[in-house]
Structures are given as structure tokens and as C-alpha cells.
């Protein structure tokens, strides 16, 4: 009787997870989804735990971008599924360590960590006779393969 109860509870959890993913539930994120959509990037709710340790990845990126770490008011990390058909310029190392990524060539519901430095100052490249305001980027995000720890791409705005 007790075993049946636990089996039912487990199935309920699994089914809830499947329904959540398939129903296109909005992921919990502090990133600006509207901004991401302009570069054709989409987030989805990840189904389970990442292979790589969250804190290890966070420390890896904070160490690599040490100046950003000291400049930022906050450094956040999120575990997400990313879809971005626009980016195929991965490093050889990133492709070799993840056969799925190598085969697909781009990220489609791909499990990643996104480390975001908030409060940086970065100016965009303005062209000749530009008549707008100087573009200031205040957030910079680094996308990391949650299965291998390899850095994949970054974006700022």
C-alpha cells in the first residue's frame, strides 16, 4: 500500500514536469525576454537538474571575468533551456565536448547556465553620423553549456 502511494506520487511529479515543459510555461528569469527575442533567443523551463554544478560554473565565470565581477552590482546565475538558431559560431572545444551540440549545430532547448553581470558600463559601436543617444550596455550575460561547462556565447545590452 505504501509502495503504491509513493509510485503514484512519483508519477504525478513526472507528469507535472512533462506538462509544464510541453505547455510552454514561462521560465523564471531576471533576463529581459523582450530583449532576447530581438536576437531570436528563447528560454524554456528546464526539466530537471543540470549536470554541471551551479556554484562551480558561477565561480568559473566570475573568475574569468574578474573585472566584471568587481564592477558589477550583482552577478546572477540561471539554469535554463535556450533556443537560439541564429548562433552557430561555437568554439571547437565546445563542439567536441558536446556531441549533441555538434550534431545539431545550434542550441534548441539546450540546457545552459546564464551568468549575468548587472551594473557594468559598456558602450555600443555607433556609426558615422549616428543621431541617437550613446548606447550603454548595463548587463552582460555569459551562456555556459550546463553539461560540459564550456562557454558558448555572450550577449550584452
Amino acid at each position: 500500500m505504501k509502495k503504491r502511494y509513493w509510485f503514484s506520487a512519483l508519477m504525478a511529479v513526472v507528469l507535472t514536469g512533462i506538462v509544464t515543459v510541453q505547455s510552454g510555461a514561462t521560465p523564471q528569469t531576471e533576463l529581459n525576454l523582450t530583449t532576447l527575442s530581438k536576437i531570436h533567443m528563447r528560454l524554456d523551463v528546464p526539466p530537471g537538474q543540470a549536470k554541471m554544478d551551479k556554484n562551480a560554473v558561477l565561480e568559473q565565470i566570475k573568475t574569468k571575468y574578474a573585472d566584471a565581477t568587481s564592477e558589477s552590482k550583482q552577478v546572477k546565475i540561471e539554469y535554463q533551456l535556450v533556443t537560439n538558431p541564429d548562433f552557430t559560431a561555437f568554439t571547437t572545444s565546445a563542439l567536441e565536448k558536446n556531441p549533441e551540440l555538434k550534431a545539431k549545430g545550434y542550441m534548441e532547448k539546450f540546457p545552459v547556465y546564464i551568468v549575468t553581470f548587472k551594473g557594468i558600463h559598456e558602450e555600443g559601436h555607433v556609426p558615422l553620423n549616428y543621431k541617437g543617444q550613446t548606447p550603454i550596455h548595463t548587463e552582460m550575460s555569459i551562456v555556459v553549456d550546463a553539461q560540459t561547462g564550456e562557454e558558448l556565447m555572450g550577449f550584452s545590452h
Partner: peptide
């Protein structure tokens, strides 16, 4: 805030 950059590592 109308500027977005994507970059490689």
C-alpha cells in the same frame, strides 16, 4: 538601451 550585442568567447 536600444542596443544589443552578441559575442563569441
Amino acid at each position: 538601451d536600444n542596443d544589443i550585442k552578441v559575442f563569441n568567447p
